[in-house]
C-alpha cells in the first residue's frame, strides 16, 4: 500500500515536471513564431510602401510619358457618356445618350454621327 502511494506521488511529481518542461518548450516555440510574425509583418508593411510608391500618380505619369511615349489626352479626346436610365420608350433599349465633356476641333476628313 505504501509503495503504491509512493508511486502515485512520484507519478504526480513527474507529471508536474513534465508539464513545466512542456510549457517552457511551447514558450520557446511561441517566441520563434512571434519573431516570424514580426518579420512577416515588417515585410508586409514594406510591400505596402512599395505598392504605395509604385501606384503614385507621378510615377505612373512619368512611366506613361517617358517609357511608353504616351501624351495627355487633348480636349475632345476624352468623352464622358451619360447613360439615361429613364430614356423614352421609343428608343432602342440600352442605347446611351451621348453627352460630351469637352469639345474637340473639327478636323477635315471627319464625319459627325
Amino acid at each position: 500500500m505504501k509503495i503504491l502511494a509512493a508511486m502515485a506521488v512520484m507519478s504526480l511529481l513527474l507529471l508536474y515536471v513534465g508539464e513545466r518542461v512542456d510549457v517552457v518548450r511551447v514558450g520557446y516555440h511561441v517566441e520563434r513564431l512571434k519573431l516570424k510574425k514580426v518579420a512577416f509583418q515588417r515585410e508586409h508593411d514594406e510591400l505596402r510602401v512599395t505598392v504605395s510608391k509604385l501606384t503614385s500618380p507621378e510615377r505612373i505619369e512619368r512611366a506613361a510619358t517617358d517609357r511608353l511615349g504616351m501624351v495627355p489626352a487633348r480636349q475632345g479626346q476624352v468623352i464622358l457618356v451619360r447613360l439615361e436610365p429613364d430614356a423614352p420608350s421609343d428608343r432602342k433599349p440600352g442605347r446611351p445618350e451621348v453627352r460630351l465633356a469637352s469639345h474637340g476641333p473639327r478636323e477635315p476628313g471627319l464625319r459627325t454621327p
Partner: peptide, 23 residues
C-alpha cells in the same frame, strides 16, 4: 466622372468607333 449637361456633337473619323465606359 462629372459629365456636362449640354449635349455636343461628336466628330469621328471614317470607320472609327467610340469606346464607352460607364460615367
Amino acid at each position: 466622372g462629372v459629365t456636362s449637361q449640354a449635349p455636343v456633337r461628336v466628330a469621328l473619323a471614317e470607320g472609327e468607333s467610340i469606346g464607352v465606359r460607364r460615367a
